[in-house]
Design a protein around this nucleic acid. Sequence first.
DNA 1: GCCGTTTTCGGCCCGACTGTTTTCAGTCG
Length: 579
Amino acid sequence: MSKHELARIFNELGLLLEIKGENPFKAGAYYKAARTVENLDEDLDDLIQEDRLAAIPGFGKAIVQKILEWKATGTIQYYEELKEALPSGLLDLLRVPGLGPRKIATLYSALKITGLEMLERACQENLLLNLPGFGAKTQAKICAGIEFLKEHRHSFLWAEGIERALRIREHLAAHPQVEEVGIAGDLRRFLPVGNRIDLVVAAQDPHSVRAFCSSPAFRQSLGLNAEGRDPEINMLSFELTGGLKVGLTIVDPDTFPTALLFLTGSAEHTAALQQIAKEKGFTLHSGALQKGQEAILCRDEAEIYQKLGLSYIPPELRENRGEIEAAAAGHLPQLVTADDLQGIFHVHTTASDGVSSLRELVEASIAAGFKYLGIADHSRSAFYAHGLGSEALVRQWAEIDQLNKEYPNFTIFKGIEADILPSGELDYDPETLAKFDFVIGSIHSQFRMTESEMTSRILKAMDNPFLTMLGHPTGRILLERPAYAVDLEAVLDKAARTGVIIEFNANPYRLDLDWQWCRRAKEKGVLIAINPDAHSTGELDLVRSGILFARKGWLTAQDVFNTKTEKEVQDHFRRRRKL
DNA sequence: GCCGTTTTCGGCCCGACTGTTTTCAGTCG
């Protein structure tokens, strides 16, 4: 019964209403309610208790009533009825790029298409060509979109996967025989997009735990189906509704460390470990580390590494990209931690499209122990996000000055997320840009330039002395939109030369710059800022989860801009402008 | 469905882009 669940329902309600052809603004009211619920700073229960729901902007009579109904019954009748009236597959169609509610309504009414498979067949038979509003290009785009979706059918974002995995772990841990449950695989290695949820369960009596996991009650409570099993390795395989694959491996507590190591992977990493084991006269497999016939019991993974002559390698580095050699030489990087962070950049307020006020964000940052906060609302070209015009800027700067006085031990930097226009210009004139402490430049339009055009556009922006940081450098939206074409080598080289900081955008849908490029940036001596791109106080915390993915890119505190002190940050801003 | 008023209806962030049209609908950010 989390607020995320309620937000999901409201969002789906909006979509269903649009597909049904209802007033789009009515749908919009539900989208807004979904966003509001998701970003609530206060506890929903408190708001209900104190009868304050109706005071929240966007919550009218109908929405309040539905929230109360959901709290009381776990569902919303209106939502259930709508779902009943429309085939569930229609919502899947929304994932196809270029398909929105109206086109889906046409596909449903004209061709009775209710799901991806039917849509694919209709495309193959050229049935879309003659529908109103459709044509050859639309059909081709839909085909390509379906292909992309099929390819990523079992893929999931880390944030989604970990939520599911934690729920399964909680269920397993409640079993009396279970001693330990480890989340392994792609999730433990912090891959931004995973393909399977792996859990390792240590139990004194694996047989009884396996029976428990096979029971309909266990599966139903977690939405698991399509069970398979491999008795050799005690592995059960499931598929979650929506296509996510889950593997549960149930082992004796003695073999838990080796099983966890192997199921964490990567396959390349464990294969390399096996090779080292062999060279040292051991054999290593998921059941044990052995010397001849004798099993060598290890308390934990660290002891396995130690027996192999290696320092402990954190899971996020286990990709066989040099980490084993580094561990053998004792040169593993001292990875950045959440404790190293001093402050946060790239935060939106209610002045543009955020939902928390400047004051709320400042107070939340102070409460979280940060020393500074870099505000960066959208620039004037971003109409859809209420980009700030000159008057709004003056107002915000005055408010920042006031808050800086009020909180003398905390610094609020005046910043902006300025659109990098197609020409490579930033979205304000130099006089305005000069008044900011820092400027993040981001691409929000014209994604489809050629690589050379896009690269020139970005390099030109980086030549602007007022540009401090490059925001979400590839524009990718994971599992939705690929990165735009850009020569990142050239961008990173330029960053190294000019001192432009490259953003690591910690939004779970972006995680952009990708970890592999983070490492490249580090090698070139480029500074990375781990930014939450927060639109609410709740999202400030994304900076901490972002750390986990930045670590995968081998980043240390020295590589991360927002581990610097307020004074060092000030100095960097000034130096950059004098270039 | 929400909201605010010169309150109980009429507007709701809005422009770019695409592909379909031949003046615009739908999607996207």
